[in-house]
């Protein structure tokens, strides 16, 4: 079974590093982008199995990026990451598969990623 490929989109270098180390340890292939523009480039080159997307980013923010991404990709799961729960009421995030509040404890994130990927795999099985 191929390793699942995860694209981490976050403007914070240390966060990207932390996430990539953790996720690599958890058995994923990891790619990283520092903003929406770079993320789109990476996606164009190689489509990931899952995207972790920071909401607050300079330039195009996560939510706007998600809206544009969903216009031509309805299936690739996206996990939104944010510092606080402020965005829970924002209906635009419904376009994402999951929503995770950033924490130094990465267990919730890893659990969410696993769940989302399992779900996604189940949905694509009949094809």
């Amino acid at each position: 079974m191929n390793k699942k490929r995860i694209l981490i989109v976050d403007d914070e270098e240390n966060i990207r590093l932390l996430y990539s180390e953790e996720l690599k340890d958890a058995g994923y292939e990891v790619d990283m982008a520092k903003d929406a523009k770079e993320a789109q480039k990476k996606i164009d080159i190689q489509k990931p199995d899952l995207i972790t997307l920071d909401i607050r980013m300079p330039g195009i923010d996560g939510i706007e990026f998600l809206r544009r991404f969903r216009e031509h990709d309805k299936t690739t799961p996206v996990v939104l990451c944010t510092a606080y729960s402020d965005y829970k009421q924002d209906f635009r995030i419904w376009a994402s598969e999951a929503y995770v509040v950033k924490s130094s404890n990465l267990e919730p994130l890893k659990n969410t990623i696993r769940e989302v990927l399992e779900k996604s795999a189940r949905q694509s099985e009949p094809e």
Partner: peptide
Amino acid sequence: LAHELKNPLVSIGGFARR
């Protein structure tokens, strides 16, 4: 500021856990 604080905290805490 809290947002800005949050990310370093996530990093500090995250790496400490690592």
